[in-house]
Design a binder for these strands. Sequence first.
RNA 1: CGGGGUGUGGCGCAGUCCGGUAGCGCGCCUGCUUUGGGAGCAGGAGGUCCCGGGUUCGAAUCCCGGCGCCCCGACCA
Length: 482
Amino acid sequence: MADSKALTTREQDFSAWYNEVIARAELADYSPVRGCMVIRPNGYAIWEHMQRALDRMFKDTGHQNAYFPLFIPQSFLSREAEHVEGFAPETAVVTHGGGKELEEPLVVRPTSETIIYAMYAKWIQSYRDLPLLINQWANVVRWEMRTRLFLRTTEFLWQEGHTAHATEADAEEETLRMLGVYRTFMEEWMAMPVLTGRKTDSERFAGALRTYSCEALMQDNRALQAGTSHNLGQNFARAFEVTFQTEEGSLDFVWNTSWGVSTRLVGALIMTHSDDKGLVCPPRLAQWQVVIVPIYRTDSERATVLEAAERIRRELVAADIRVHLDARDGMKPGAKYYEWEARGVPLRLEVGPRDVAAGTVMLARRTGGGKDSLPMTGLAPRLAAEMDAMQRSLLDAALARREAASVRGASKEQFIEIMEGAGGFVYGGFCGSAACEAEIKERTKATIRVLPDAEFRSPVAPTHCLWCNGPSVSEAVWAKAY
RNA sequence: CGGGGUGUGGCGCAGUCCGGUAGCGCGCCUGCUUUGGGAGCAGGAGGUCCCGGGUUCGAAUCCCGGCGCCCCGACCA
């Protein structure tokens, strides 16, 4: 690396720190195309592990994968009024193909509701065809003004689930089920606690009836929308004439849902756990869960140590632990330690002549504690237990951070002070007025992240709007967001 | 699109004011010595100085016109 050795600290400049963590860990790089990043192998590996876990969860809840076109006829977008209004300004449009101007321009998908529901109209005839539960892993393009690595890029990778149901209740159940899947994934795999709940109308997906969201709090106390699940009602079904014959023989429009998470999650992961030494990656999503660093002076030491290291590596591989033996010559162990720490490898094993002689290895944890000498035998179960503990403690620590940055029952003045200062989640009553919501945003840059689900609400429901002091219709959580 | 900054080997920068052989650090290559927390020495490779005009005997440097990128805002997964 060409960088000076220490990273900018989170304290000094969170945004610079974030970019440096990514550069140092070689997660992503800027590409020649404005706003588009290259996801490098180290970053893509994390995304692949996320994909694998999510895909399993989607399949376990009855979904199948399919693939729909990258291009969408421009007219499709306009069929749903709110949808076109929401997305048209940020589309990339193809006007020429094969050297000729196209009869109808093609939009590069910013999301695939329109083309998918156009197909669903062909596929669905009867209530017997429902529910239709499909997911697609794809890339989408949104022409954003300002981009940031992983958090907001012009092109990004995501999954979008699109389902059709016979009743409103079925669609609502699906919407909430997938929100729950996201939450489980974020907590159990990313070790990232989230608040779940409903979005206000002003934050609702363009064309949806209701939008639900998982909201996480980053280490700089700004909120990040980590995943959304939409109950689309019959809006798209009407626009694309997705009808079905009911059991009673009448014709009805289907009820749709859509839900998605993106490579933004990699950014969320970075900003949730990493420290001033670099990336911290929860074991379950780490490319390498364990790295072995051999230590030697002479050729004969090198031979013995590498032999022992290789034996350990094979044993761990056999136990399904993702392990890498860093046998690079001409690099001092200390240099390797710093490099693997910056890359977020959870556990490091140091194997030197003294260890080999004693039948031990030195274990160093990326977070939560120093080094321990362990016997070489029985290493696999021991490391698996270490990783479980680390996975748990990362979630606990993130949860503790979030709760420390959450305030309930703040006055208007305290609210303003918090948003101008430390930031974080502020819980309070909300009158339900879009005007009030807009005024708060105008004044403090804070938005309602979510109208929280029951388990996140305060023990005593607020009675008055935090801002206008009118009667509260719902508790809300505000924060400044990414 | 508004504000700020910046374009010089792979990366980070100096040089620009005041025109005169293109430099430094890191990285990279080779060799030797090193290796339990970021190695040392020696040798070496690598540059249309963002682009296009202009001024000049001579431009990284001065003038004119473009473009890119980064950061901060308004918009967003």
